[in-house]
Amino acid sequence: MMAEIPLDKASLIALVLETFNLGMFTVMGGATIRVIFQRRFANNSSLMLSTLALIWLLSTVHWIIDIVRATDAFLNSPPGALAYYADVSNPLQAAKTAVYVTLTLAGDFFVIYRCHVVWGRNWLMVALPILLWLGTGAVGYATTHAFLQTHQGGIFLTRLKPLVTGFICMTLATNVVCTILIAYRILKTRMRLHKANAGGSRVYSALIIFLESAATYSAALIALVVVYGMNSNAQFIVLDLTAPLIGITFSMIILRLAMGDSSETNSRNASGSFPLRVAAVNVSRLVEVQADYGTESFDRNESGKPDRYEHPK
């Protein structure tokens, strides 16, 4: 069994890895902004840009707070770095927690919005994720307040554990529920397109991209709740890694979809043809499938007669 990593060393390692991840997010974020302006994904460029900017700003503020805390801990704290990091009532610790909670809420909000759009803007389908989102915010900010009221003991105090664990589990549940709902909707739509001989490979590719990205963030949250439950200081490392990871997964989906579109376009240019296939599609109502950011739509009129679906492939 490995020896427990000291709190001060865990915090320093976390800062180094967070710096690396934030740099990666900054580069990917810049590329994502360019892609959004060029391709106008899903006709919601303004929302995507504002969400991306907010996530980057909060991630940067989180990192700056960690820089200031490291400076205070290793250079300006007479009791030493270990005692400094163990004091969860430090105002900077509370500020860091509040920023992380807000960052998590921003990321979860866009996940819920995607689910809402994929399900034809049906509020009933996102009722549970919205309740989980509200609970995440309530518990997260309650945890911040609890930290300020804790003058002795560290983050693993018995009275803090339900709050911290509840926050992590609720944001994890929000992402898992939305991912399942989106995946089900996209798979169902792909089956309809396949039966109608209207293609659907792009929908399937977008689904794989979305699931891979969602799995990355969910795995980080699972790791976080596990190491926290084990009272391991490694949770500080995982926690600081997940801050910029929210933005990385956000950008990853857009960039990979753009790469897929570019590859498909180059393939068609090389063949010198741009076929437009028209197929009859039999579905009950307009369905907008937003495979995270790419969109494909098809419908049928109220009389039950199939409409024509134009698939630009």
Rank of each mutant, 00 (worst) to 15 (best):
I67V: 14
I67A: 08
I67T: 04
R69T: 05
R69V: 02
R69N: 05
T71G: 09
T71W: 14
T71P: 02
D72N: 13
D72W: 14
D72A: 14
A73N: 13
A73E: 03
F74S: 15
F74A: 11
F74L: 09
L75Y: 11
L75W: 05
L75M: 15
L75E: 08
L75H: 05
N76P: 09
N76E: 05
S77K: 14
S77T: 07
P78M: 03
P79W: 04
P79S: 12
P79C: 11
G80S: 07
A81H: 02
A81L: 03
L82C: 15
L82Y: 10
L82V: 14
A83S: 14
A83H: 14
A83L: 07
A83D: 12
A83V: 11
Y84V: 07
Y85C: 03
Y85M: 11
Y85F: 14
A86I: 15
A86P: 08
A86W: 03
A86R: 07
D87H: 09
V88A: 10
S89H: 10
N90E: 11
P91Y: 06
P91G: 07
P91M: 03
P91H: 05
L92E: 12
A94Y: 07
A95P: 02
K96S: 09
K96R: 07
V99W: 01
V101D: 01
T102N: 05
T102M: 15
T102E: 10
L103V: 15
L103G: 11
L103E: 02
L103W: 08
L103T: 07
T104E: 01
T104M: 08
L105V: 14
L105M: 13
A106Y: 01
A106T: 04
A106V: 08
G107M: 13
D108M: 08
D108V: 09
F109L: 01
F109G: 01
F109A: 02
F109E: 00
I112L: 05
Y113F: 06
Y113S: 00
R114F: 03
R114K: 13
C115L: 02
C115A: 08
H116E: 04
H116L: 14
V117M: 06
V117Y: 04
V118K: 07
V118M: 08
W119H: 15
W119S: 06
G120S: 12
N122C: 11
L124N: 12
L124F: 05
M125F: 04
M125V: 15
M125E: 12
V126D: 01
V126L: 02
